[in-house]
């Protein structure tokens, strides 16, 4: 079982990385979206490896089924001009900057993980959905509700943007 898990991990990791690469490098927005979807699916596979099928299915249901579709909608609504600022290749400074950003985040994270390893389980244990729900509604109630505040802010932002555009028209 150990070996199978490792093989699966490599496969999922490859799916995630490959999808990410496609998403970043591809010229066509829709192809980039396909890359993003494959990344999301790979992450769902990782959740399965962690024995949290609930998370995995939710990942597929919400991110792949809903969010990706909405992103596609947004892609269809955008219009890329031939002479727009995205048409030229990015300047080298920008690429270096983004590389630095990735390195900084990655560095900090790996430093934390290497120096202060989390007390992990050798074999993941499946958490029942009921327990998960109780956890969200009881012990982590405030954090859970705060997340919905973020969603509220995002939604009002979207409404505001749409409103401005319509007024301009």
């Amino acid at each position: 079982m150990e070996l199978m898990a490792k093989i699966s991990f490599v496969i999922y990791a490859l799916i995630i990385l490959g999808g990410g690469l496609v998403a970043v490098t591809s010229q066509s927005l829709v192809r980039a979206l396909v890359g993003l979807i494959s990344t999301l699916l790979g992450v769902a596979g990782m959740y399965m490896l962690l024995a949290t099928p609930f998370m995995a299915f939710m990942q597929i249901l919400i991110y792949v089924g809903a969010v990706a579709v909405i992103v596609f909608f947004a892609v269809m609504l955008t219009r890329a001009d031939e002479g727009g600022e995205e048409a030229d290749p990015a300047p080298i400074r920008q690429s270096l900057g983004s590389l630095a950003a990735v390195a900084a985040v990655g560095g900090v994270l790996s430093w934390v993980l290497l120096t202060k390893p989390v007390q992990g389980l050798k074999v993941p244990v499946e958490v029942a959905v009921e327990e998960l729900g109780k956890g969200l509604m009881e012990s982590y109630f405030v954090a859970f509700e705060l997340i919905s505040v973020i969603l509220l802010v995002a939604m009002s932002g979207a409404v505001l943007l749409a409103w401005e555009r319509r007024v301009k028209k």
Partner: peptide, 17 residues
Amino acid sequence: VNLGLLLILAFAGLNVL
């Protein structure tokens, strides 16, 4: 699967892609 219903709903949504 324990979460069979969820699985079906999750994958049925992929068709639109």
